[in-house]
């Protein structure tokens, strides 16, 4: 549903949003959780944490005990270390996918909304077509072409999840392009590029920010499905492959890999969900809860 007069974001509104965020206790906890995961991911990527994930620390499929609080996997590797190392994959997948989706979504949506006419028709046709194809088919096709590995995972997920944002941005840009401030910019001879990216886009950034946190958690969850299809991350542990391993293990009573990966994922996805809701409430009261 359209809102006739969306508030123009100004400095004071951003500050206001920030203030209301700060007051939201849950949002602050969620933010802290996200930061913690980010820290773990960073430490793991520079080798401080999780570097020993490939070492054997015990017997094959040892149940959780004092030494290995999450037990061991088939090779006797620590499930805890794997979970930590998996954080790196999850956070990077979330981040890169969200960035790719946002880059495509914003550019495509903004161009369609701003120029209108034939360009708009074409872009709308393209994304309608694109979004009518089931996501799983596109994922499979893209990995078929790209081959395997984390890059393929980034691209497959990034390239298939920009449509929603493009739609929203297009709608917002259409609303904004006839506003006074844009006309003023035209009057002083600003280029299309300048008007669009310097003047209009900052005013629709709140949508992007809300979308970012949604995309982030969506990508983390999707990585599991890719792993199930055998198209996931290769050569290093990810939560997706750990959950996928469970399909051979759980029936024999080995529950700890599933539990550890699910629990780790639960924490960060939940945090992003809560953060996303809080951001939406703070930044765009009109969109509250959608």
């Amino acid at each position: 549903m359209s809102s006739a007069n969306a508030p123009q974001m100004s400095k004071s509104l951003w500050r206001h949003a920030l203030d209301s965020l700060k007051k939201d206790r849950y949002a602050m906890i969620a933010l802290a959780v996200v930061l913690l995961y980010t820290l773990i991911a960073l430490l793991s990527s520079i080798g401080v944490l999780g570097a020993n994930w490939s070492q054997e620390v015990g017997a094959s499929y040892a149940a959780p005990d004092m030494n290995n609080i999450f037990g061991t996997d088939i090779f006797g590797r620590s499930v805890l270390e794997k979970t930590i190392k998996g954080t790196e994959v999850a956070m990077s997948v979330g981040l890169v996918v969200a960035l790719i989706a946002i880059a495509i979504g914003v550019v495509v949506g903004a161009i369609a909304g701003y120029f209108g006419g034939l360009i708009d028709e074409l872009i709308v046709w393209f994304y309608t077509t694109f979004s009518s194809i089931p996501g799983i088919m596109l994922l499979v096709a893209i990995t078929l072409i790209m081959g395997k590995g984390i890059i393929a995972v980034y691209l497959a997920l990034g390239l298939t999840s920009w449509v929603q944002l493009a739609r929203l941005i297009r709608g917002e840009v259409i609303k904004h392009k006839d506003r006074e401030y844009v006309q003023a910019a035209s009057a002083i001879g600003s280029s299309h590029f300048r008007k669009l990216f310097i003047h209009i886009i900052p005013n629709v950034m709140h949508i992007v920010i809300i979308n970012f946190s949604l995309q982030f958690q969506f990508a983390i969850k999707s990585e599991v499905i890719l792993s199930y299809l055998g198209l996931g991350v290769q050569g290093q542990p990810s939560w997706g492959t750990m959950i996928d391993d469970a399909k051979l293990e759980l029936a024999r009573g080995v529950w700890w890999q599933l539990a550890a990966a699910t629990f780790a994922m639960f924490g960060v996805v939940l945090a992003f969900n809560i953060l996303g809701d809080a951001l939406r409430d703070a930044l765009d009261p009109k969109l509250k809860g959608k």
């Binding site: 078929l144 081959g147 395997k148 590995g149 299809l229 055998g230 198209l231 290769q234 050569g235």
Partner: peptide, 9 residues
């Protein structure tokens, strides 16, 4: 470097 592929591929 380990690369896994769906069987047909």
């Amino acid at each position: 470097k380990v690369v896994t592929n769906p069987w047909p591929e």
